[in-house]
Write a protein that binds this DNA or RNA. Structure first.
Length: 579
RNA sequence: GCGCCUGUAGCUCAGUCGGACAGAGCAGUGGCCUUCUAAGCCAUUGGUCGCAGGUUCGAAUCCUGCCAGGCGUGCCA
C-alpha cells in the first residue's frame, strides 16, 4: 500500500504541475504532497486524499472546484486507478484497479516470512527494559515492561531499525546490601535451627521478607553448611551470591515469557571501569557541578529539570543517578544513535534529569527517549488483587505465567496502550473462549486457515501452487477485500514502530482475524473447498486460487503474531478436551 | 502547589497526520450447525467522546481554563 500511495501521489502531482504551468493554480502548491489514507467506509473507495480541502485556501477556490480540476487533469498512464470520485466537501476518493491488489498478493507470497518488513532505517537503537533490581523475583508490573519492550524490539526490527535489547542490572548500591543482609539473617536462623549456638542479630532495616529470601538462605546453607555462620559476615560474597540467584530467577521467568536480552549491563562494571568518575569529571569540566552541604550537586535545573540533583552524597558515596548519568552516556559512546528506556510510570520524574545530564555533557537530549508503562492491577472476580512489594506477598510474574500461560500473559500486556493503566482480568485470561480471551481469538484465524490447507491435502491431493494472474482472476470480491487489509501489515508495523505504540499491531491482528472469520462463515454457501471428493476442471482453478489466497492470509496472520512474539498455532486446543 | 498519565456505550478498551454517519469485545435481545474447528458468524439495543470556552471549511483528536482518578515530587534504588 505504501508503494501504491506514492504512485498515486506522483500521478496527482503531475496533474498539479500541469495546472500550475497553465497558471490555473498558484505555484506554492507545488510543494505539497498528496496524502492518501484508507477511508472507513467502502463506498469512499480504496484510498482518499483531503488535498483539496487542505489546499483550498491557498488555491483561493472552493475545495470541490480544486478537486475537480485535479481530477480532470489526471493521466493514469500505469492504469492503476479504476475510478475517481469527488465526494462530500471535497475529498478525492480513488478506487484502485483490482489488479493492484492481486499483484500485492504475489508480493506477500514471495516475501513469505519477510512480509511486513520495511526498508533499512540505518539507525542503531539501544532498547532498555525491565531492569528490575536483582533483589527478588519479577512481579506483574515488570512483566508488562518485559512484554512491551520485547514486542517493541521485534516491531522496530521488522520496521528496519537495528535494535539491541539491554537489561541494566543494578548490582551495586544499598538494595544489594540489604539483600545480602537479609539472606545472612535467614541463613543464621537456619543454622540455629540446626542446633548451632549463634547470637541473634537484628533484621536489617530495609530488609527483604519474601519467601524467596528464605529459599536463597537455604541454598546458601546447602552450599556452605554452618561453617560460614561462625565466620564474620562476608558482605561481598553474599552480595554476589544473592544477585546471582536473583538474576538466575529473573532470567528463567523472562525466558518463560519468551523475552531475551542481547546484554545484561552491570552497574558494578560502570564503577569498576571508572566510567562514573569519568562522567563526573566531564560534568565538572563543563562547570555544571557545585558543592553544597558536603554533597556534590549537578545543576540540572539549568537545563530541563525542576531542581538540582545530588551526584555524590555528603558521605562520599555515589548516588544511583551518578551511575545512570554514566550509563546513558556510555550507551551513546558505544555507538547507538538513540536509546529508548522503558520505565514504570512512577519513574517519570526521572526523565528531565537524565536529559539534563546528556545536554550538559554535550549530547543531544533527543537521543534519549523514555517510554512510560502504566501500572498493572490484577482483577479477579471484578475485585482488585492487592499488591505490596516489601511485605513479600506481591503477585509474582512467574505465578501469573503459570496460571494463565505465557502467550495469554504476553497478549494482555501488549494489546492495550502502554500509557493507560491496565486492569488484567484473570477470569477472562483464564477463559478458553476466544470471545472472552482475545489472545485466542487472534490465533484462531491463523489456525483455521491452516486447518483448511491441511484438509485439502488429504482430500484432493492438491498442491496450492504458485501465484499466477490467471488463477488470481478466479478470486471474488470477498477475497480481494480481505487482501486489501492484508496488504496493510507493513504500514501498521512501521507506524507502530515509529509511534512506539505496539498495541496497534495487536488491534490489527484482531481485526484481521475477525475479517477472516466473517469471510469463512459467509463462504458456507460457496465453500472454500468443494464438498465433493472429486474436482471438476472448472472447480480446480477456483480452489487453487483460494488456496493460494489462504496461503497469503496465513502468512500475514503468522507474521503479525510473530512480530508480537506470539506463536502462530496450526491448530487450537479443543476446550472440550481441556475440560 | 508543581510535573507526568488517564477520563469515549452498563463493563473492558480501539480510534493513525484534525476528516465523511464515533468503533470493537463482553453483557442484553433475535437468528445461523447433515458442511473445511459454532472455540465461529449475522442482525439488533445502547454514546451530551469528563465539563466550559477557543482555533478551523471540519475537533474525541489541537490550544486554554476547570473537574475527577492514578503516579511522582529523597543526599532511596
Amino acid at each position: 500500500m505504501i508503494k501504491i500511495k506514492s504512485r498515486l501521489n506522483k500521478i496527482f502531482k503531475k496533474s498539479l504541475k500541469k495546472l500550475i504551468e497553465n497558471n490555473e493554480l498558484p505555484e506554492i502548491l507545488q510543494e505539497k504532497d498528496f496524502v492518501f489514507s484508507s477511508p472507513k467506509m467502502k463506498v469512499h473507495g480504496d484510498l482518499a486524499t483531503n488535498f483539496a480541502l487542505a489546499s483550498a485556501k491557498i488555491a483561493r477556490m472552493s475545495p470541490r472546484k480544486l478537486a475537480s480540476l485535479l481530477v480532470d487533469n489526471l493521466q493514469d498512464t500505469e492504469q492503476i486507478i479504476s475510478d475517481v470520485e469527488i465526494a462530500g466537501p471535497g475529498f478525492i476518493n480513488v478506487t484502485l484497479d483490482n489488479y493492484q491488489f492481486l499483484q500485492g498478493m504475489e508480493r506477500i507470497l514471495l516475501a513469505g516470512k519477510n512480509w511486513g518488513k520495511s526498508s533499512d532505517k540505518n539507525e542503531k537503537i539501544n532498547l532498555e527494559f525491565v531492569s528490575a533490581n536483582p533483589t527478588g523475583p519479577l512481579h506483574v508490573g515488570h512483566g508488562r515492561g518485559a512484554a512491551v519492550g520485547d514486542a517493541l524490539a521485534r516491531i522496530m526490527k521488522t520496521a528496519g531499525y537495528d535494535v539491541s535489547c539491554e537489561y541494566y542490572l543494578n548490582d551495586a548500591g544499598n538494595q544489594v546490601d540489604n539483600l545480602a543482609l537479609s539472606i545472612w539473617f535467614n541463613y543464621l536462623q537456619i543454622c540455629r535451627e540446626q542446633g548451632r549456638e549463634i547470637p541473634e542479630i537484628e533484621f536489617p532495616q530495609d530488609g527483604y521478607h519474601g519467601e524467596y529470601i528464605k529459599e536463597m538462605a537455604t541454598d546458601y546453607f546447602a552450599k556452605k553448611g554452618c561453617e560460614a555462620a561462625t565466620n564474620e559476615y562476608d558482605a561481598e560474597e553474599l552480595k554476589k551470591f544473592g544477585v546471582a540467584k536473583a538474576v538466575e530467577k529473573i532470567k528463567t521467568t523472562l525466558k518463560k515469557l519468551g523475552v531475551e536480552f542481547d546484554r545484561f549491563y552491570s552497574e558494578n562494571e560502570l564503577h569498576n571501569q571508572g566510567k562514573i568518575e569519568t562522567a563526573i569529571k566531564k560534568l565538572q569540566a563543563k562547570g555544571v557541578l557545585y558543592q553544597q552541604e558536603g554533597a556534590l550537586f549537578f545543576k540540572s535545573s539549568e537545563f530541563e529539570d525542576s531542581k538540582d540533583r545530588v551526584v555524590i552524597k555528603s558521605d562520599g558515596s555515589l548516588t544511583y543517578f551518578a551511575a545512570d548519568i554514566a550509563y546513558h552516556a556510555d550507551k551513546l559512546e558505544r555507538g547507538f544513535d538513540k536509546m529508548i528506556d522503558i520505565w514504570g510510570a512512577d519513574h517519570h520524574g526521572y526523565i528531565p534529569r537524565i536529559k539534563s545530564s546528556l545536554t550538559a555533557m554535550g549530547y543531544s537530549s533527543e537521543r534519549f527517549e523514555a517510554l512510560l508503562v502504566q501500572f498493572v492491577s490484577l482483577i479477579s472476580k471484578k475485585k482488585k488483587v492487592s499488591m505490596g512489594k516489601r511485605s513479600g506477598n506481591f503477585v509474582e510474574l512467574n505465578q501469573l505465567i503459570d496460571e494463565v500461560g505465557a502467550d495469554v500473559t504476553r497478549w494482555y500486556f501488549i494489546a492495550k496502550s502502554h500509557d493507560s493503566a491496565l486492569d488484567f482480568d484473570l477470569n477472562s485470561a483464564l477463559s478458553m473462549d476466544p470471545k472472552e480471551n482475545s489472545a485466542r481469538y487472534a490465533q484462531y484465524g491463523h489456525a483455521r486457515a491452516c486447518s483448511i490447507l491441511k484438509k485439502v491435502k488429504s482430500k484432493f491431493a492438491l498442491v496450492p501452487g504458485k501465484y499466477s494472474p490467471e488463477l488470481a482472476r478466479e478470486l471474488g470480491a470477498a477475497e480481494i477485500n480481505l487482501l486489501k487489509f492484508m496488504l496493510e501489515l507493513p504500514e501498521v508495523i512501521l507506524n507502530s514502530a515509529q509511534s512506539r505504540e505496539i498495541h496497534h499491531v495487536a488491534a490489527y491482528l484482531v481485526e484481521l482475524s475477525r475479517n477472516f472469520h466473517s469471510y469463512y462463515t459467509t463462504m458456507k454457501d460457496d465453500p472454500i473447498l468443494p464438498r465433493k471428493d472429486v474436482l471438476t476442471a472448472k472447480d480446480e482453478n477456483k480452489v487453487k486460487a483460494r488456496l493460494i489466497w489462504l496461503e497469503a492470509f496465513r502468512t500475514v496472520a503468522r507474521n503479525a503474531l510473530e512480530v508480537l512474539g506470539l506463536p502462530a498455532p496450526e491448530q487450537m486446543e479443543s476446550p472440550k478436551e481441556v475440560q
